[in-house]
C-alpha cells in the first residue's frame, strides 16, 4: 500500500514543477504600494534629519514599518542602495513595543485604530511618521498619502515636521498639500 502511495506522490511531484513556469506568468501593473515604497525611498533624499538622529557618518538610514507589511517582495528593491553614503535598511515591527530606532516610520493601514497612540508614542523621536491612513498628518503625523484619480499625492504637516526637527526639501513641498494639525 505504501508503495502505491509513494508512486502517487512521485507522479504529483513530477507533474507539478514542469507546469509551474507556465502557470506563474505574472502581470506587472504597478500597485500603489510600490509607488508608496518609491516615495519612502525618495524621502531619504528630500528630508534632513536633526543632529543626534544618526550616531555616526556611516550609520544606516532605517525605514521602519509598523503593522502589516504592504510591500512584501517590493522591499528587495531597496537592497544594496545607499543615500549620501548611508545604507538604506528596512525594519518591520508588529507592535509599538517592538519599534526600535528608525528614521522613517511607515504606519501601515492595519494600525488604523491606533493612530493616536502611535503618534503620541513617537512625539519628539526625530522620526518621520508617514502613513496611508486618511488624515494621518492632520492627526499629528508628518506625511500622509492621498489617492486622487489614480494618482498619489502627499499631505504634509509642517508643524509636526518642525516638532521632530525635520527639514523637508522645498522641491517635495511644492508638489504637496500643506496642512496643519495637532
Amino acid at each position: 500500500m505504501k508503495r502505491v502511495f509513494l508512486h502517487i506522490l512521485l507522479i504529483i511531484l513530477m507533474l507539478f514543477p514542469g507546469s509551474v513556469s507556465n502557470l506563474a506568468a505574472a502581470t506587472a501593473s504597478p500597485e500603489d504600494s510600490q509607488v508608496v515604497l518609491a516615495f519612502l525611498y525618495n524621502f531619504t533624499l528630500f528630508v534632513e534629519w536633526p543632529e543626534g538622529a544618526f550616531n555616526s557618518k556611516d550609520d544606516p538610514i532605517i525605514i521602519g514599518i509598523i503593522g502589516d507589511d504592504p510591500f512584501g517582495e517590493g522591499l528587495h528593491s531597496l537592497k544594496g542602495r545607499t543615500v549620501n553614503g548611508r545604507k538604506v535598511l528596512v525594519n518591520i515591527f508588529k507592535d509599538i513595543q517592538d519599534v526600535r530606532v528608525c528614521h522613517i516610520l511607515f504606519v501601515s493601514d492595519s494600525e488604523r485604530d491606533r493612530v493616536a497612540t502611535i503618534v503620541a508614542a513617537f512625539r519628539k523621536s526625530k522620526m518621520l511618521l508617514v502613513s496611508r491612513i486618511p488624515d494621518f498628518a492632520r492627526r499629528g503625523g508628518t506625511i500622509n498619502f492621498i489617492t486622487t484619480s489614480n494618482k498619489i499625492g502627499l499631505e504634509i504637516n509642517l508643524e509636526a515636521a518642525k516638532r521632530e526637527g525635520l527639514t523637508i526639501n522645498s522641491r517635495l513641498l511644492n508638489m504637496s498639500k500643506i496642512i496643519s494639525g495637532s
Binding site: 500597485e31 504600494s33 504592504p70 493601514d109 494618482k151 499625492g153 508638489m175
Partner: peptide, 11 residues
C-alpha cells in the same frame, strides 16, 4: 514622476 504614475488599487 512619482506624482504622475497611475496606480491600481490596494492589494
Amino acid at each position: 514622476d512619482l506624482f504622475n504614475i497611475e496606480v491600481t488599487s490596494v492589494s
